[in-house]
Design a protein around this nucleic acid. Structure first.
Lengths: 220, 220
DNA sequence: GTCTATATGCGGATAGAC
DNA sequence: GTCTATCCGCATATAGAC
């Protein structure tokens, strides 16, 4: 068995790199089996590392989870803030949704066990509520932009219901997907299509061609 | 402290009644704090009973969960099968949705930790998938009935997306609700309104008055 | 930084008296 | 049916050698 290279890199001491390896492996295991089922010893074993060493880097499992969630918040933040330029067409929205679902998929352990995590680690609750509220506001804003651009025809009330529904779907899609037959495509693209299709009845006729294209792609 | 009355009732031996008390208390605790956080000793303590006695009635915690889920399946089955008579208006659908959400709310621990439960107790996975598939089929059928009755105008493809979205919402609503501000009404009625509002753009004009009434009720 | 060895505590599960 | 007492196993957490 080759010994892992822990020699310090310029500006990157071995300890930092070990921390990153721990986080990467933990993320993969959490996504695969869930936080509840993945013990600290399991993580250490997967890394070929002793529990003692793991504990040297992260005193408690909660710290690993917390670190990963903070990373998610940082990476999702810019996506969640929405595009800087105004949306002018439905495929702009499509791109936004696709990026969002890819990020959620990358950290899918968070939403898959959201209830367990927020009761096990209460500090997470408030932060996830904040993210949710931000998502709703962004979606409302984007829909309002589309309405202004003449792509979409909906009242303020309709947009509010729609935005909530979109965030609900984004939040729960990968959890719900596990209740569908395994033959179904449930990846990020399919998820984005599902969300986009909520808008269809409100779209201007000429904006529907793009959605038609996506339909053929994801419900073939 | 008064001693609990465990004297046998006609046709109801004390053991049965104790089983029921255990199930009732477990359900309440699971709904409140989640299956993962509620230990067998906690259940026993709540009932003023020893762990040994609890174990006499249910050898493993999994058996309690399993029993409760089976009860849910039995009670949800008739609801999920849908009304026996054809739907003729949107308020028929409203009643169906409301009954469904009340049942889900009663057993909300199941969906709130669905991912945790299906990995911890794999036998649950297949059964929940079955229920989900059944729900989708029923919703498709009901929408098709409404379309036939002239209340709703949607293609088969649109109905498919819609049914999936409705079941997703039913499945995840009470989980998602915990990410909303606590000031929001997120009860079964509000949930049913949210699902119904997915249909609005497809409804015939004269069917929207009922939804308008609900809107005033739940988004006041 | 990394290891081995060990302490601590809890939840699940059991045995046997009453 | 119900209790007390106890065991097992796992996960978290720590101590101290290298």
């Amino acid at each position: 068995m080759p010994k892992p290279d822990n020699s310090p890199l310029p500006g990157k001491p071995a300890s930092l790199r070990t921390r990153d390896r721990i986080l990467a492996t933990s993320l993969a295991l959490f996504n695969a089996d869930g936080v509840a089922k993945v013990s600290a010893s399991r993580i250490a074993a997967e890394l070929g590392m002793s529990q003692g060493n793991l504990h040297y880097h992260f005193r408690r499992k909660e710290e690993i989870v917390d670190r990963l969630v903070r990373r998610y918040e940082q990476e999702a933040g810019p996506v969640l803030a929405g595009p800087t330029s105004e949306l002018a067409s439905v495929d702009d929205l499509w791109l936004f949704l696709h990026l969002g679902f890819e990020k959620i998929f990358e950290y899918r352990f968070i939403y898959r066990e959201i209830d367990y995590l927020t009761t096990e680690f209460p500090s997470l609750g408030a932060r996830m509520r904040e993210l949710t509220a931000q998502g709703i506001e962004t979606l409302k804003r984007l829909c309002t932009q589309l309405a202004a651009a003449g792509c979409l025809r909906a009242s303020e009330e309709e947009i509010a219901v729609l935005a909530l529904q979109m965030i609900l779907t984004a939040t729960c899609w990968f959890t719900f997907a596990r209740l569908l037959p395994e033959t179904e495509d449930t990846g990020p693209g399919r998820a984005a299509y599902q969300v986009l299709s909520l808008l269809v009845p409100f779209l201007a006729d000429n904006e529907r061609t793009y959605v038609e294209y996506l339909r053929r792609k994801y419900r073939a």
